[in-house]
Every structure is written in structure tokens, then in C-alpha cells.
Design a protein around this nucleic acid. Structure first.
Ligand code: MN
Ligand code: MN
Ligand code: ZN
Ligand code: ZN
Lengths: 142, 142
DNA sequence: TTTTAAATGAAAATCATTTTCATTTATAAA
DNA sequence: TTTATAAATGAAAATGATTTTCATTTAAAA
């Protein structure tokens, strides 16, 4: 958790038990959740906690790279842990069965970029690669 | 429009003036819009038209491949024309300046797939590549 | 022309997300 | 350790996108 303490500090965010609890929950589960799901969990540990606090924190955590936001079922937005908090370029993959989320650093978009720019006549500023699949546990039927 | 007439028919959707007006609007503009924006336009041409009708049609059009849904500004969902209504694998690129949307068929994800599967231990089922950039017109300052 | 299911409008409901504002708390200065 | 300050928070209400309901209309097929 030292890493996260540092990250919060670096970004001018205060260190609070609630923030640590949220981060721990994501770290422990490696799954993506809705703000509401996080709130349900947090209410067990903190008798007083509002849903807006969850929304506010998840948004900030995404901004500083601790979490990533993915579009999951039912056009809802979910958040999942983003382990690559270093600034390295990377992408995410989710398991449609258990909602596990992982990240990986390999990317070959660079090889494609020029060609797409020629065909579309766009200057490409961002590329987002998003993968869906079945994770190892779900393959094994866990 | 014959192409779209056929597509609607093939998918068991009735041919209506409103549907054609929606499709024409997307074809004419090559930009992505919110359902509300489409509604504002449609109200000029049809004195009676409800927002739910727009939502319902946009959703159906996406399902049959006429439109694609993209996440644009402010965490809203937008729809844009999807020219590649043939079933060919393709991806989309949007202009963050004028909201133009285009599609292109080249893709090199196949070369990456095995490697990502090894690293992440996922079986990859879907990949989505989504690009943002500046279109030719906006580059020229139009 | 008749029949039938799909499409629609109007109104209300839903529900995720955000805002407001008074209170609490982490942090750093004194 | 106090004190000062801005950030964080909870409660409640507001917002706003999207969906549902249901009676009516309409396209398409018989
Ligand atoms: Mn990449
Ligand atoms: Mn591809
Ligand atoms: Zn899984
Ligand atoms: Zn543009």
C-alpha cells in the first residue's frame, strides 16, 4: 500500500481509511465493479458512507491511474484496478464470465498507425485497444 | 437508400419515413450524435415524434450494423453511421474536433493475439480498437 | 380491404450520477 | 501540540439520460 500512499500524496489527495479500503478491495479482487457495488461493500466497514463519496473517489482514482474505467454490461460504467500505475502505455482485458480485469503492455498499433492515417486522412491522437475474453480460472471452470 | 431498405427488411424492421430520415441524416453528416440531437433534428421534419422513438431506432440500427455507438464527451453515448454494413471486420475513428466518424478495415490485431493470450492467460473473444484524432477538414481549419 | 404485429407518442417511471451545503477530517503551519 | 486551511464527506435533493407503459397508429401481408 506504500505505493498508493505515495500516489495519493503526489496527486494532492488526502490519505484516508476509506480510500485505502476502496483500493484494497480492488487489489484483492482484480475484478471490475460499479460504484454501487463498491458502496455496498464499503457500508459493511463504515457505518456512515455516502454513494457520492464512492463516485468522487473512483473518478479521482481513475484520473491518477489507479483505476481504469470500462464499459461493461448494460451500458454501465465499471471500474477496475489498473496495475500499471507507471506511465507505461498499456491496455486492458476483461473476462466476460467473472469480470476479472488484467492489463498488458504489448501493443503493435504503432505499425498500423501510418497506414490508417493515410486511409482515413486523420491525424491519430489516441488509440484504445480493449479486449474481452475468458480468463484462466473461468476456462478451468472455477 | 435501397441498401438500407433492404437491410431493414432483412432484419424484420418496417420501412418508415422516420427511419429513412434518421439514416439520411447520419449519411449526410458523417458525424456522431446523441439521441437528443437526432430528436431535435427530427422534430423539424415531423411535428409528432417522441424521444423514445429515437432511442428505440438508434438501438435497433446499431444492432443491425447501420450505426455504431461510441463513447464521446461527458461519458455520453453517441451514435454514428457505420458505412461498412457488410460483415467485414473493421474499426472506427472519430474526430474530437468536429465529431466526424469514419471506419477502416485494416487491422493487425491478429499478429498480437497469441502473445497477449500467453501473457494474460485469457482466451480472447473480442477486440475493439477505437481511435481518436483530427480529421482532414479540421486539420485544414475548416 | 382486412388482419396482425410492429411502431409510435405521451406521460410517467427509473435510476445512475451529480450537486449543494453544512459538517468533519487530514495535513501542515505555527 | 494546537491551530488554521482546504479537502473530504454525508445527507438530501436535483439532474438528466434512458426506459417503460399503454393506448393509438401504421406498415406489410393476407
Ligand atoms: Mn496500444
Ligand atoms: Mn481489429
Ligand atoms: Zn473469468
Ligand atoms: Zn474533424
Amino acid at each position: 500500500m506504500e505505493k498508493y500512499k505515495k500516489l495519493l500524496k503526489e496527486n494532492g489527495l488526502k490519505i484516508t481509511p476509506k480510500r485505502f479500503a476502496i483500493i484494497s478491495y480492488f487489489l484483492k479482487n482484480n475484478k471490475y465493479f460499479t460504484p454501487y457495488e463498491i458502496w455496498k461493500f464499503m457500508k459493511k466497514k463504515f457505518k456512515k458512507i455516502g454513494l457520492p463519496t464512492i463516485y468522487r473517489n473512483l473518478e479521482q482514482f481513475e484520473k491518477i491511474g489507479i483505476l481504469t474505467r470500462v464499459e461493461g454490461e448494460e451500458n454501465r460504467f465499471y471500474y477496475g484496478i489498473c496495475k500499471k500505475t507507471n506511465k507505461k502505455h498499456h491496455h486492458h482485458i476483461i473476462c466476460t464470465s467473472c469480470h476479472k480485469i488484467s492489463d498488458f503492455e504489448i501493443c503493435n498499433f504503432g505499425q498500423l498507425k501510418k497506414q490508417v492515417e493515410e486511409i482515413t486522412e486523420f491525424d491519430i491522437k489516441e488509440h484504445h485497444l480493449f479486449l474481452k475474453g475468458i480468463c484462466q480460472n473461468c476456462k478451468k471452470g472455477v
